[in-house]
């Protein structure tokens, strides 16, 4: 019996797999015996005989190669390197604008523009509701004596909440795969491979860039075999300005995936849908028993003012976000009126 290689095989992972076989063998775990029977000397041996014999890493690599239907490790390695050259990506997409602001709206504007939609950063700020949002996480980290209640995980949250409005207005299916940071632990690389990689590969193969949720948004335009395997446009450190092509600095906790085109509704339908979303977010109440500590809309304002009165929450980040967001709100409503 043989196994199938994944669509995007990774030599490093295959080496780890071989090392895992050696470790299993060393601790007497019989689950490795099936693979090790690819070695001639173990072909007709009982589990106990296999586990009592010596085993080298080279032999384990050979067995892994046979498991995937190759004659040996060299053949498997050559195949993986060949595949590496045919990984999807290297989309020739222009970089997002370099102006500071919400990186999700900026990144998505670039992605949608590349896909042929005429939608600006200000439009996306308004449609997503980010322009009107004030988000607060009362359990954010402390920055000296102040609570960083507007810290970076808030950035993508409101954008995701308005993704269906953006999709409705632009006539492009947009799907979000999102996981909490605790879901990704202890191995974000494995979590990415398990839950997101095939969707990202498939979307890139269809010629569409993907927006990843890292510390800020990261526009994926290509993949390779390194760690993390995501190449495209991102930001450095605390900056909210996109830079030229670079590698993502971390594995994402989610991805926003463009899909098929669909009919675009009338402008009045879009405006109505958009304003209804803004009002719903402003009046949103936290769900009962919701473990999430984030608040939005009116509740966020009340909590922020309460925090300030208690001596924390006088925070740079919140004012920076308010300036970006409310500037976009005025522009968005100005273009609608």
């Amino acid at each position: 019996m043989t196994s199938h290689l994944p669509d995007t095989p990774n030599l490093k992972h295959l080496r780890h797999q071989a090392k895992d076989v050696v470790k299993s063998h060393k601790r007497g775990d019989a689950t490795c015996c099936r693979i090790l029977r690819h070695l001639n000397r173990f072909r007709h041996k009982a589990d106990a005989d296999i586990l009592n014999a010596t085993l080298s890493l080279v032999e384990a690599q050979f067995a892994i190669a046979r498991e995937y239907g190759f004659k040996g490790w060299a053949g498997l390695k050559a195949h993986v390197q060949e595949q590496k050259g045919s990984l999807p990506g290297s989309l020739n997409m222009p970089a997002p604008g370099k102006e500071p602001g919400n990186t999700y709206a900026r990144g998505m504007a670039a992605v949608l523009s590349y896909l042929g939609h005429d939608v600006s950063y200000e439009d996306l700020m308004g449609l997503s509701g980010v322009a009107f949002s004030l988000q607060i996480d009362p359990e954010g980290p402390m920055n000296g004596e102040e609570l960083d209640c507007a810290w970076w995980p808030n950035d993508s949250r409101e954008f995701r909440a308005g993704l269906s409005v953006v999709s409705f207005a632009t006539g492009r299916d947009l799907r979000s795969l999102h996981y909490s940071w605790s879901d990704l632990q202890p191995d974000p690389a494995s979590a990415f491979r398990r839950w997101m990689e095939s969707e990202v590969v498939s979307t890139l193969s269809q010629g569409a860039p993907v927006l990843a949720e890292c510390d800020h948004a990261f526009v994926i335009t290509a993949m390779d075999q390194e760690n993390p395997p995501l190449l495209g446009y991102g930001t450095h450190g605390k900056s909210t300005q996109f830079e030229e092509t670079l590698r993502a600095s971390m594995y994402p906790c989610g991805v926003l995936l463009p899909g098929r085109e669909k009919p675009v509704p009338s402008q009045s339908e879009i405006d109505f849908h958009s304003l209804t979303h803004v009002l719903n977010r402003f009046h949103a109440e936290p769900a009962p028993n919701d473990a999430c500590t984030w608040l939005c809309g009116k509740r966020a304002w009340e909590e922020w003012i309460r925090l300030q009165k208690s001596g924390i929450g006088c925070d740079n980040n919140m004012l920076i976000h308010l300036r970006y967001n409310r500037g976009s709100a005025a522009a968005y409503l100005g273009s609608m009126a």
Partner: peptide
């Protein structure tokens, strides 16, 4: 008109911020 009024209030908000 209502949207225009709201837009003006957001302009005020920007100035305060």
């Amino acid at each position: 008109t209502a949207v225009h009024q709201a837009g003006n209030l957001y302009l005020d908000a920007c100035a305060h911020a």
